[in-house]
Design a protein around this nucleic acid. Structure first.
Length: 424
RNA sequence: GGGAGGAUGGCCGAGCGGCCGAAGGCGGCGGUCUUGAAAACCGCUGGUCCCGCGAGGGGCCCGUGGGUUCGAAUCCCACUCCUCCCGCCA
């Protein structure tokens, strides 16, 4: 949620920022709603002050005086009864506008509206691997190795569900441990969070109301299945005021993620590139406003380190302003080269949400001088396990279909397991 | 699924319908004392919104939402959440 007072102070800045999302006119609608609300606040508060004054006098007054005062206060109360609903309506109108308005993009986010407009920041290790044979895609490899079963996944649960089998399960767990070890070393507190959350948490993180169609809802209990552990990690400090000395607070969440993938019909069908359920290790940071940009760079660097350890060719892209998620002011994606698709595909994503999420979550920082302000939140993928498995299979495959597992994973794997071998 | 309690400030905990944004304690900050520290003593110690350049003034907040009343932390209604016991269960 944007800060209305900041918009009031410098509307031009917000107009220009939101124009990059094609939403320049939102500023004027917000300002009009804010003006109306403040006018009503002024009038209602004057009446309440008058009512309070008179009521206090009544308490102290003698009986004959009392009747007269009660009559006077009745007139004030009548006015209040009329104005209070108007004030409430004006407040909701403003809240709805603000809830539907996304964050202002950072200056360093490039112009544009689609993934095509993202700007490449850097690549790792230059070129994608050259194969002296025709590389298979992960679906073919998964079948050959006997480690992926999408047909039975569909039978049990529908399309976009997959069974992971055999040694690939050990690779998944190794990826999880590998990421958590690095994050713990970097000062992140490991967390296994709840994956069902209340509406408040979904709203606070900005997934509701805008992303509703992509969220699984448990009607009976009024709970939502999280699409990322960003949600319960952000909600961890919902409504709290953190001490400046305790920042940054860094968390590494490991959870299963659930996504309806509505509106992606026909996209990335087959295999497990786009599925309804996958596991992910996620970074989440609560920082002071002045340090969030440094933290953002640091988190991307951690992502690069993790992917580098897995010996995967990747590139970092800076997402276009108009293509950002609603809460983000800036986002880096890391795209990994997939030989099966002959292109780079999104593997991780790292966003600085500045104060947008924190204001909705009411998460603030108490400065050492005692003042209180909204803090900044960031989130980033440490390892999206499903897609990382795909990248490992496709990039480390050999002519016979076997797959060599990256050395950095060896300590986390069973000793016999260094290569995934095709089924006999 | 059945039953019983509870929700007040960073934490614990009091609170006759008006003098209660709220006693007291703990914690925190500052000070006195001390070579230093502890102890003791003294003082300070909520958030938010509106008006104002500021000094300051005002509104709201005792789980949430309604109601009664001139006036509600206190009375009434509904809801939510938490805890405990029994049952079931990974």
């Amino acid at each position: 949620m944007l800060d209305v007072r900041a918009i009031r102070d410098d509307p031009e800045r917000f107009r220009a920022g939101l124009a990059r999302r094609n939403l320049a006119d939102a500023v004027d609608r917000i300002l009009a709603a804010d003006e109306r609300r403040r006018e009503l606040v002024r009038r209602v508060e004057e009446l309440r002050a008058e009512q309070n004054r008179l009521s206090k006098e009544i308490g102290a007054a003698a009986d004959e005086e009392r009747a007269r005062l009660i009559e006077r206060v009745a007139a004030v109360s009548a006015d209040l009864k009329r104005l209070e609903p108007e004030l409430e309506a004006a407040g909701s109108a403003l809240d709805e506008l603000l809830a539907a308005t996304p964050n202002v993009p950072h200056d360093s986010a490039p112009d544009g509206f689609t993934d095509e407009d993202a700007v490449e920041v850097r690549r790792n290790h230059g070129a994608p691997p050259a194969f002296d044979f025709e590389p298979r895609d992960h679906t073919a490899l998964g079948a050959l190795l006997g480690v992926l079963d999408t047909e039975r996944g569909a039978r049990a649960s529908g399309s976009r569900f997959v069974y992971l089998l055999g040694d690939l399960v050990f690779v998944q767990l190794a990826l999880m441990r590998h990421a958590l070890d690095i994050l713990a070393e970097e000062g992140f507190v490991p967390v296994i969070p709840p994956v069902l959350v209340r509406e408040e948490a979904m709203y606070g993180t900005g997934f509701l109301p805008t992303d509703e169609v992509n969220i699984y809802r448990i009607e009976q209990d009024g709970l939502y299945l999280v699409g990322t552990s960003e949600v319960p990690l952000a909600a961890f400090h919902m409504g709290e005021i953190l001490e400046e000395a305790d920042l940054p607070r860094l968390y590494a969440g490991y959870s299963t993620c659930f996504r309806r993938e509505a509106g992606s019909y026909g996209k990335d069908l087959g295999g497990m590139f786009r599925v309804h359920q996958f596991d992910k290790v996620e970074m989440f940071a609560f920082t002071t406003p002045e340090s969030s940009w440094d933290t953002h760079e640091r988190m991307v660097a951690i992502e690069e380190r993790i992917i580098g350890n897995l010996e995967l060719p990747f590139r970092v892209v800076n997402i276009a302003a108009g293509d950002l998620g609603g809460s983000a002011a800036k986002k880096y994606d890391i795209e990994v080269w997939l030989p099966g698709q002959q292109r780079y595909r999104e593997l991780t994503s790292c966003s600085n949400c500045t104060d947008y999420q924190a204001r909705r979550l009411r998460t603030r920082v108490r400065r050492t001088d005692g003042s209180v302000e909204v803090l900044h939140t960031l989130n980033g993928t440490a390892t999206a396990i499903g897609r990382t498995l795909i990248a490992i299979l496709e990039n480390h495959q050999r002519a016979d279909g076997s797959v060599a597992l990256p050395e950095r994973l060896h300590p986390y794997l069973p000793e016999r397991l260094r290569v995934l071998e095709p089924r006999a």
